[in-house]
Design a binder for these strands. Sequence first.
DNA 1: CGATTTTGACCTGCGC
DNA 2: GCGCAGGTCAAAATCG
Length: 340
Amino acid sequence: MEDKENNNLKPETTSTAALFSDHQIPASSSTNYSLSSIFDIPPCETEKGSSLSLIETMFASHDPITTPSIFDLLQPPPPPPPLLISSQSQVPNKEIVNTPNNSSSISSSSTEAANDDQQTTKTVDQQADDNQDKNKKQLKPKKKKQKREREPRFAFMTKSEVDHLDDGFRWRKYGQKAVKNSPFPRSYYRCTTATCGVKKRVERSSEDPSIVVTTYEGTHTHPCPITSRGSIGILPETSVYGASIGGLGGGGDSGGGTSSLFFPQFHYQVQQQQSTYFQTPTLPISFTSTTSDSSLFSNTNSSQERIFSPSTSSSSPLARDHGLLQDMVPSQMRKDPKEE
DNA sequence: CGATTTTGACCTGCGC
DNA sequence: GCGCAGGTCAAAATCG
């Protein structure tokens, strides 16, 4: 039938752009960030010799009010601590993930606790889900009315020929749905680890079939398994700001060795010319577009969405083939080790 | 034979 | 209230 996913895990070219995240970047903190710390990305040492191909990264805040973009990080931090996310911004889009609207428990104020609970005890949400599961398995009585609370999500775009990128974790597909206005279906995956409820959605952009939009939801509660393909796992917590990054922050001071936040680590070779990826206006990925058929992109109604385009800020970081996110970030954003 | 994928049905939330 | 679309379930099929 659909020959779409026959090319699993054998990417030829891959470049990645972070679309958005639930992470509430602590803009009030130091402006010295590295992307790896912002997103808990371990300073990936990829398979020796080959550089990581997380080359193209872009951050588009979907709620500029609450979630500072990379650009914000480059600016002097605003006076008040933005960690509190109470923006009631009128975003009607339910896909808006970094808008912890009233119903969401993702608000930074509860993040740490939530993540703690996630690793130690079940959150209310999880318990509710359990109940729901049981209910469904039995007679499918009406689900609890309890509003389902979303896990923090993080999405990014990857220019790849494969849909399901190997990020080091093992995933099990549990569903596939046709996406409205898109010829490509959306696939739903769950982490196969029993205690881990992380999900991810994978879909191709209808605008540019070569672009895969991956949305992660939740946080892994276990170290990354090394896959058979030799992918490196998510290393244990290395973040500096991990505890304070809203949403996924994980763990707060729970310390622990578990990665409170995951970020896919791609280990594919990237096109040499990827830097044009964000520069070429003809590319249909219109992050700034206010209209899009993709819900992932539709959260731009504010039109204030800002884009982090490494290629425009400096040609050198991207030009280098380091492949590490850190290399893409202006040095001023990097965490000063001395500040540890 | 266990793990994974496929796929239709079902559930839920939201807009009209 | 209804319909639509997204998300999930779970049985069957497929794979290794």
